[in-house]
Design a protein around this nucleic acid. Structure first.
Length: 355
RNA sequence: UUCUUACUACCC
C-alpha cells in the first residue's frame, strides 16, 4: 500500500493525472488501499488544478461509509482549498462544521485552511473568528489573514496585522514579505512595494521568484527603471537559468521583466528578453505583455504586428481577453479600423465568450 | 507514503 500510495503521489506531482487515477482505481479493485490512498489521489487532482475532480473523489470517499476511511486532518486540508477555488462557500462551511465535530479543528493546518477559505471568500469576519479561536497559530495563519485583508480591500487592517506580527516577534518568512509587497504592487504603489522589499533584504530574508514578480510589477507601475534593472541583476544572479529554479517560474520572471522594461519605455530591452525565450516557451502572458506594452507606451503599430505574429506563429496559443483588449486598444490608438474589424471577426469566428 | 498561506499581462 505504501508503495502504491507513493506512486499515486508521484504521478500527481508529475502532472500525470491519468496514470495516478489508473493506479488508484487498480488499488480500489484489489481492495488494497487506505485513507492515505484517498488523500493522495485527491491531492493529485488539486495539484493539477482540477478542484471539481478532487471534490467528486472526496464525495465518493465519504459516501463509501467505510469505517476505516473517515476523513482526517489531511483530507480536510485537501478539500477546503478545492471549495475555495470553486467558490463553494456553503460546502466549505459544512466541512468547517465537520472539522469541529470530529475534533480536527485543533490541527493547525485545518485551522489555517479554514482561515484561508473565508479569506478567499472575502468573509474576513468569519476568518477572524477562526483565527481568534485557534489555540495554536503559526506564521501561515498570520499570512493568510494579512493576505485576506489586503485582497478584500481592507488594506489598513492588513498593514496593522503585519505590524503586529513584527511586534509579537513572529518570524516573518518570505511569504509574509511577498504578500505585502504584492498588495502594494497591485494597488500601483510601486515605491511602497520597493520600500518593503528593501526592508525584507535588510532583515536577511531571501526573495524567491514570487517576490520578484511583485517587485517588478511594482517597478513597472511607477516606471522605476533603475530599481527594475537592479531587480533584473538580482534575478540573473539568483533565479534565471540556475539549477534549482523551476522553468515555469523562469518564464514568469522573464515576462515580468518584459513588462517592467516596456512600461519604462525601454522597448529594446523588453524585446531582447522576449526573444530570450524560445518560441515554444512563450506563453499568452509573454505575448500579451509585449503587445500591451507597445499598445500603451510605444508604437501601436508594433503591437499590431506582434498580434498578427502571435496568431501566425503558434496555432496552439490562443489570445485571451487581455490580449484581444490590448490589440483593440492598439487599433484605436493608430486608427486602424480595418485591423480592428479583422479582430472583431476573429472574436466571432473563434467563439470568444464575451462575458 | 498524502495536506495549508504570497505571485506576473489590458482598461478603470
Amino acid at each position: 500500500v505504501f508503495v502504491c500510495n507513493a506512486v499515486v503521489s508521484m504521478y500527481g506531482r508529475c502532472g500525470e493525472l491519468g496514470s495516478a487515477r489508473q493506479v488508484f482505481e487498480e488499488m480500489c479493485q484489489s481492495g488494497v488501499f487506505d485513507l492515505v490512498s484517498w488523500n493522495s489521489i485527491v491531492a493529485a487532482y488539486l495539484q493539477n488544478a482540477d478542484s471539481k475532480g478532487a471534490l467528486l473523489l472526496f464525495d465518493r470517499m465519504t459516501r463509501m461509509g467505510d469505517v476505516e476511511i473517515r476523513p482526517d486532518a489531511v483530507s480536510i486540508v485537501n478539500v477546503l482549498p478545492a471549495c475555495a477555488s470553486l467558490g463553494l462557500w456553503l460546502h466549505g462551511k459544512q466541512v468547517h462544521g465537520f472539522a469541529i465535530r470530529s475534533g480536527l479543528f485543533e490541527d493547525v493546518f485545518v485551522g489555517n485552511s479554514l482561515v484561508d477559505l473565508y479569506a478567499k471568500g472575502g468573509m474576513m469576519n468569519e476568518a477572524n473568528k477562526v483565527f481568534e479561536r485557534m489555540q495554536e497559530k503559526d506564521v501561515v495563519s498570520w499570512n493568510a489573514m494579512v493576505t485576506g485583508y489586503a485582497q478584500s480591500g481592507q488594506f489598513d487592517y492588513a498593514l496593522s496585522l503585519f505590524e503586529k506580527m513584527r511586534e509579537d516577534d513572529i518570524e516573518l518568512d518570505v511569504v509574509s514579505w511577498s504578500a505585502v509587497i504584492a498588495s502594494y504592487a497591485q494597488k500601483g504603489l510601486g515605491c511602497e512595494a520597493l520600500d518593503i522589499f528593501r526592508e525584507m533584504l535588510l532583515c536577511g530574508v531571501k526573495p524567491n521568484e514570487v517576490t520578484l514578480l511583485s517587485v517588478l510589477s511594482g517597478c513597472a507601475s511607477v516606471g522605476a527603471l533603475l530599481q527594475g534593472k537592479e531587480t533584473h541583476c538580482f534575478a540573473i544572479k539568483c533565479i534565471l537559468r540556475t539549477i534549482q529554479s523551476d522553468p515555469g517560474f523562469e518564464v514568469s520572471v522573464i515576462n515580468s521583466l518584459v513588462d517592467m522594461y516596456a512600461k519604462c519605455k525601454s522597448f529594446d530591452q523588453a524585446r531582447a528578453l522576449f526573444q530570450l525565450l524560445a518560441p515554444e516557451e512563450r506563453d499568452v502572458v509573454s505575448w500579451t505583455t509585449l503587445i500591451g506594452g507597445y499598445a500603451q507606451h510605444g508604437d501601436a503599430n508594433d503591437a499590431l504586428d506582434l498580434f498578427a505574429r502571435m496568431i501566425k506563429e503558434n496555432e496552439f496559443l490562443k489570445p485571451n481577453a487581455f490580449t484581444i483588449s490590448c490589440a483593440l486598444m492598439a487599433c484605436a490608438r493608430s486608427n486602424a479600423l480595418s485591423f480592428g474589424r479583422q479582430i472583431h471577426a476573429y472574436i466571432i469566428r473563434n467563439h470568444y465568450d464575451l462575458t
